[in-house]
Design a protein around this nucleic acid. Structure first.
Length: 866
RNA sequence: GCCGGCUUGGCGGAAUGGUAGACGCGCUCGACUCAAAAUCGAGUUCCACAAGAGUGUGGGUUCGAGUCCCACAGCCGGUACCA
C-alpha cells in the first residue's frame, strides 16, 4: 500500500438518504424464502376456516420484451396495499400473479429475432417476475401461472370443448349439452347450427400483413398501430356470445363497477327494442327491423342493404344494370372506405313494397347505409323522423311525410327524431304520445300478423380463430370423408403446437400450422384443425385457475372454488384492478365464459368480478402518453435503483387519486424519498463510522399520557384505515407525512407510537417499515417477534381524538372575519354571544342591523347583517 | 354527431353545503458549512398594506356553493350510418 489514493465522490454516487439498496433486496429474499404471503386452500393442512376470504386480483400482464412500465406498479401497488391491509385485519387473502403469455406481439417479436416464441416468452416472464419481486408485492408466488404452460393450455382447451359441446337453451336461458338435442333426434347439421362454438363462413377482418383474422373488437386497435385490416370472406370458428347478450346486460346491473364501464359494455352490446314488420313485394315478404314502429305511417320508401338476399329477385330489368354496378362498387370497398364518407349513396331497384298499415306502395332502394349484419338488413325509411333517412330522401327527392308533432312548438318537425311528440297523419295512432303509439302499433302488428315486437343487439358473435402459431390449437379434427368436425377426447389434452422451424404466417388463411404435415395427420381419416385461439382465450379464465393452479384432475376443485369465489351476493373476485383498455374486450369475454361455466355448475357465481376499479393512465412528464417515440417513458428499474422500491410504490400512490389520469414527476419521487428518509431518521442516526444506528429519540417509557404525537398517531390510524377502505391512498400518505413531521419535531417518541406509524405505513412501504421494526426489536425486546405484515392492524383510541377546545369561525354575511377558540362543547348561546362580542365582527356590522345569526356548533357562527 | 369523464396556486393535488389551496414539488429567506450538497426552521393563491378578488364561463338555489340545479365553453377518452 504505497500510494495513498483519495477518492472524490462523484455526485452520481451520492449516498442514499437511507440504505434501501441493502435492505430492500434482503426483505424480498426473506419473503421469498419463508413464503410469507403463501395462502392455503380449504382442505390443506393449517388452513384457517374461521377467517373470511378476500380475493384481490390484478389484471395479469402481457410479458412484453420492453419489461414493466410505470403503469403496471400503479394498479399493482394499490391491490398490494389492500391485500396487506386485509391480511392484517384478519382475512385469508388470495393475491396471485401470472402471465398472459400467448399473443401476437410475442410472435411478431419471435419472427423478428428469429427465436422460437417460447424462448422469448419465458425470458420475458423471468424479467417481469424479477421486476415485480423487486417491488415487494405480496403475491403468493406458488400460484403463478402462464397461459402458455401446457398444464394451463389443457384446461383452456377443456373449456373450449365445453362450449363446443353446448348450445343455448332459450327456455332455460342457459347453456345445455348438445347431447340433449341428439337424444331428441336432431341432425348433425341442426346441432352444428346451435353450438356455442361453431364454424361459419362470413365476412371477417383479415390482416394480410399479419396473416390472420381479427375480432371486431380488435380490428381498430391493430389498424391504429399501422397494420392493414380488410374484409374477407373466410370460414372461421365463432363463439356464440350473442346468446348471452341479454344476460350480459342484465347481470351487469348489481356489480360494483364504475358506471362508465358498465355503460361502455351496455353500448357495446347495444340493446334496442322495436319491431319487425313484414312488407310484401310481388308475393314475397320483406321483413324490416325498426325501433320506431310508431312512425310506420311515415314510411315513404324502403332500403335494403346491397348484400340483401332478395335484391336480385325483386330488381326490375330496367334497373338491373345500375343495381349490379352499385353492388359491385360496395363489395370492392373496404370497411374503412365505407365508413370514411357519410355521403348517402344508393340506387332504386324498380320494385315497390306494400306498407301493411295503409296498403300504400313505396319504392325499394338499395344503399350501403343499411348494414347487412344488423336487424334484417332492411329498413323502412321514415325521412321525417330519422336523420339518415332524411338526408337520403333530400338527396334523391323522395317524399317526406310528417307523423310526429314535437311537443316543443319551436322544434321543426322535419328531421325530428325525439320521443317527446304526438302522433299525426297516422290514423288510429293520432293523438297518442310516441311511447304509447309504439306500444299500440306493436300490438296492432301482432294482432294482424304483420309483424311482432323484437329486441336486437349490436353485439356480434365472437370471431375466435386466428391463423397464428403462438396460440392454443383447437382440440378439433376434421373428417375428410364426411367433412365434419369432431372434438378430440379430453384424454388427449393438452394439444400443443408442433415444434416448427418455420412458424411464420405464409398468407395462407389456414395458418402456419398447415406446414406441420405430420402433426396435422390425426388419423387415416382425420386431419387437425390448424387455426389457433386468440390471446383472449387464456385471459378469459385465469382468475379461476389461480384458485387451484396445480390441480391435474379438474380445472378447479369445487370446494376450493366455492370458498374463494362464493360468499355474499353477488360473490366472485372481491377486488379487480386494471386499466380501462379492457372495458369491452377482456371483461366481456371473461364474463361470457364465466356464465357458461356457471350454467354447468362449475363455478358458484354468475359473474366473475364483483368489484372493478380502473386505475388512471400515467402520462409522461410532458403530460403526453408515454411512448418510445416521444422519449418520455419512465423505466421502473431506474427509479428503484435511484430511490428504492418503497419510494416508487409510495410515489405512484401519492400522485393523485388512483382512478385519475396523472402526469409523472420525477421530482415528486424525490419528495417521497425524503419523506421515507424522515421516517427513517426518527429512529436512526448515522454514527462516526457512517453506520446507521438507533438514535436515543425512541423511548421505551410508555404511559397513558396523551401527548400531541400520540394524538397525531391515532388520527393517522383512523385516517389511513378509512382511506385504504375507499382506496384514497394519496390522502392516507399525506396524513402519514403529517404524523412523521410531528415526530421529527418532537424531542422524544415512544416506541409504541412509532411502531404504530410503521404499522399503518407497512402496506404502502413494506421494506423500510419491516427493516425499522426489526432494528427496534433488538433494543425493545418485548415487541412481538413476527414481521409487521403478520401482525394485527392497529386500532385508534377514540378518546385520544377528543379535543377539549375548538376553533370556531366567525363570518359576517358569509365572509370570514374572525376566529375564536372555545370549549369543544360550548352551547349555541355562548357561541353566538362570543361572536357578537368580537371586535372584528363589530367593525363589520357597524351601522348595520343584525338580521339573523346562524350557529353551527363546533364549526362556525355566521352573522347576517345589513 | 352521439355517449362518458375532467376543468381548483407556478406544478401534482386536498376540501361530510361551513376557514378554499391539506400534503408534496418548485421557489424565497434563515440556521449549519470555508463553501456546496444534504438536513433543519420560516414563508409562499393574486393584488400595494388594509380593503378587495379568487375553484373554466354565465345564471340560479342557500345565511353560506369548488361542492347542489340550469345553460355554455375548453380538454381527454369511447363510439361512429346499428334503423
Amino acid at each position: 500500500m504505497g500510494d495513498c489514493i483519495i477518492f472524490t465522490r462523484d455526485m452520481s454516487e451520492r449516498k442514499n438518504p437511507y440504505p434501501f439498496d441493502i435492505f430492500e433486496p434482503a426483505w424480498q429474499a426473506t419473503w421469498d424464502a419463508e413464503k410469507t404471503f403463501k395462502v392455503l386452500n380449504p382442505g390443506e393442512e393449517g388452513f384457517d376456516a374461521s377467517k373470511p376470504k378476500c380475493y384481490i386480483l390484478d389484471m395479469f400482464p402481457y410479458p412484453s420484451g420492453a419489461g414493466l412500465h410505470v403503469g403496471h406498479p400503479e394498479g399493482y401497488t394499490a391491490t398490494d396495499i389492500v391485500s396487506r391491509y386485509k391480511r392484517m385485519t384478519g382475512f385469508n387473502v388470495l393475491h396471485p400473479m401470472g402471465w398472459d403469455s400467448f399473443g401476437l406481439p410475442a410472435e411478431q417479436y419471435a419472427i423478428k429475432t428469429g427465436q422460437h416464441p417460447s424462448i422469448t416468452t419465458y425470458a420475458n416472464i423471468d424479467n417481469f417476475r424479477r421486476q415485480l419481486k423487486m417491488l415487494g408485492f405480496s403475491y403468493d408466488w406458488d400460484r403463478e401461472i402462464a397461459t402458455t404452460d401446457p398444464a394451463y393450455v389443457r384446461w383452456t382447451q377443456w373449456i373450449f370443448l365445453r362450449l363446443y359441446h353446448s348450445y343455448y337453451n332459450e327456455e332455460l336461458k342457459k347453456a345445455c349439452p348438445v347431447s340433449e338435442l341428439e337424444a331428441k333426434g336432431w341432425t348433425r347439421e341442426q346441432i352444428d347450427n346451435v353450438r356455442l362454438a361453431y364454424v361459419a363462413e362470413g365476412m371477417v377482418n383479415w390482416s394480410p400483413d399479419m396473416g390472420t383474422v381479427l375480432a371486431n373488437e380488435e380490428a381498430e386497435e391493430w389498424k391504429s398501430k399501422g397494420h392493414i385490416v380488410e374484409r374477407r370472406k373466410l370460414r372461421q370458428w365463432m363463439l356464440r356470445i350473442t346468446a348471452y347478450a341479454e344476460r350480459l346486460i342484465d347481470e351487469l346491473e348489481p356489480l360494483d363497477w364504475p358506471e362508465s364501464i358498465k355503460l361502455l359494455q351496455r353500448n357495446w352490446i347495444g340493446k334496442s327494442t322495436g319491431a319487425e314488420v313484414n312488407f310484401s313485394c310481388n308475393g314475397k315478404t320483406i321483413t324490416v327491423y325498426t325501433t320506431r314502429p310508431d312512425t310506420l305511417f311515415g314510411a315513404t320508401y324502403m332500403v335494403l342493404s346491397p348484400e340483401h338476399e332478395l335484391v336480385n329477385e325483386i330488381t326490375t330489368a330496367e334497373q338491373k344494370e345500375a343495381v349490379t354496378a352499385y353492388q359491385a362498387a360496395c363489395a370492392s370497398k373496404s370497411d374503412l372506405e365505407r365508413t370514411e364518407s357519410k355521403d348517402k349513396t344508393g340506387v332504386f331497384t324498380g320494385a315497390y313494397a306494400v306498407n301493411p298499415v295503409n296498403g300504400k306502395e313505396i319504392p325499394i332502394w338499395i344503399a350501403d347505409y343499411v348494414l347487412t349484419g344488423y336487424g334484417t338488413g332492411a329498413i323502412m325509411a321514415v325521412p321525417a323522423h330519422d336523420s339518415r333517412d332524411y338526408e337520403f330522401a333530400v338527396k334523391f327527392g323522395l317524399p317526406i311525410i310528417q307523423v310526429v308533432q314535437p311537443d316543443n312548438a319551436e322544434t321543426p318537425w322535419q328531421d325530428f327524431c325525439g320521443y317527446d311528440g304526438t302522433m299525426v297523419n297516422s290514423e288510429h295512432l293520432n293523438g297518442l304520445s310516441v311511447p304509447e303509439a309504439k306500444q299500440q302499433m306493436i300490438a296492432w302488428l301482432e294482432e294482424k300478423g304483420y309483424g311482432c315486437g323484437k329486441v336486437n343487439y349490436k353485439l356480434r358473435d365472437w370471431l375466435f380463430s386466428r391463423q397464428r402459431y403462438w396460440g392454443e390449437p383447437f382440440p378439433i379434427v376434421w373428417n375428410t370423408k364426411d367433412g365434419n368436425h369432431y372434438a378430440i377426447p379430453e384424454s388427449e389434452l393438452p394439444l400443443l403446437q408442433p415444434e416448427m422451424e418455420d412458424f411464420k404466417p405464409s398468407g395462407d388463411p389456414r395458418g402456419p400450422l398447415v406446414k406441420a404435415t405430420q402433426w396435422i395427420q390425426y388419423s387415416e381419416e382425420c386431419t387437425r384443425e390448424t387455426n389457433t385461439m386468440p390471446q383472449w382465450a387464456g385471459s378469459c379464465w385465469y382468475y379461476l385457475r389461480y384458485l387451484d393452479p396445480k390441480n391435474e384432475k379438474a380445472f378447479i376443485d369445487p370446494e376450493v372454488e366455492k370458498y374463494w369465489m362464493g360468499g355474499t351476493n353477488p360473490g366472485g373476485v372481491d377486488l379487480y384492478v386494471g386499466g380501462t383498455e379492457h372495458a369491452v374486450l377482456h371483461l366481456l369475454y371473461a364474463r361470457f365464459w364465466h356464465k357458461v361455466l356457471y350454467d354447468y355448475g362449475l363455478v358458484s357465481t354468475n359473474e366473475p368480478f364483483n368489484k372493478l376499479v380502473n386505475q388512471g393512465l400515467i402520462l409522461g412528464e410532458d403530460s403526453q402518453k408515454m411512448s418510445k417515440s416521444r422519449g418520455n417513458v419512465v423505466n421502473p428499474d431506474d427509479i428503484v435503483r435511484e430511490y428504492g422500491a418503497d419510494s416508487l410504490r409510495l410515489y405512484e400512490m401519492f400522485m393523485g387519486p388512483l382512478k385519475e389520469v396523472k402526469p409523472w414527476q420525477t421530482k415528486g419521487v424525490e419528495g417521497i424519498s425524503r419523506f421515507l428518509a424522515r421516517v427513517w431518521r426518527v429512529a436512526m442516526v448515522e454514527n462516526q463510522e457512517g453506520e446507521w444506528v438507533l438514535s436515543g429519540k425512541i423511548t421505551a417509557e410508555d404511559n397513558d399520557e396523551v401527548t400531541p404525537v400520540r394524538k397525531e398517531v391515532h388520527k393517522t390510524i383512523k385516517k389511513v384505515t378509512e382511506d385504504i377502505e375507499d382506496m384514497s391512498f394519496n390522502t392516507a400518505i399525506s396524513k402519514m407525512m403529517e404524523c412523521t413531521n410531528a415526530m421529527t419535531s418532537a424531542s422524544a417518541v415512544t416506541v409504541s407510537d412509532y411502531v404504530q406509524l410503521l404499522h399503518v405505513l407497512n402496506p404502502f412501504a413494506p421494506h423500510i417499515t419491516e427493516e425499522l421494526y426489526s432494528v427496534l426489536r433488538k433494543q425493545f425486546t418485548t415487541l412481538p417477534a413476527c414481521q409487521l405484515c403478520q401482525q394485527t392492524w392497529p386500532e385508534f383510541n377514540p378518546e385520544y381524538l377528543v379535543e377539549n377546545t375548538k376553533e370556531i369561525v366567525i363570518q359576517v354575511n358569509g365572509k370570514l372575519r374572525d376566529k375564536i377558540t372555545v370549549a369543544a362543547d360550548a352551547p349555541k348561546e355562548e357561541l353566538e354571544a362570543a361572536a357578537l362580542a368580537s371586535t372584528r365582527v363589530q367593525e363589520f356590522t357597524a351601522g348595520k342591523t343584525v338580521r339573523k345569526v346562524i350557529v353551527v356548533p363546533g364549526r362556525l357562527v355566521n352573522i347576517v347583517a345589513n
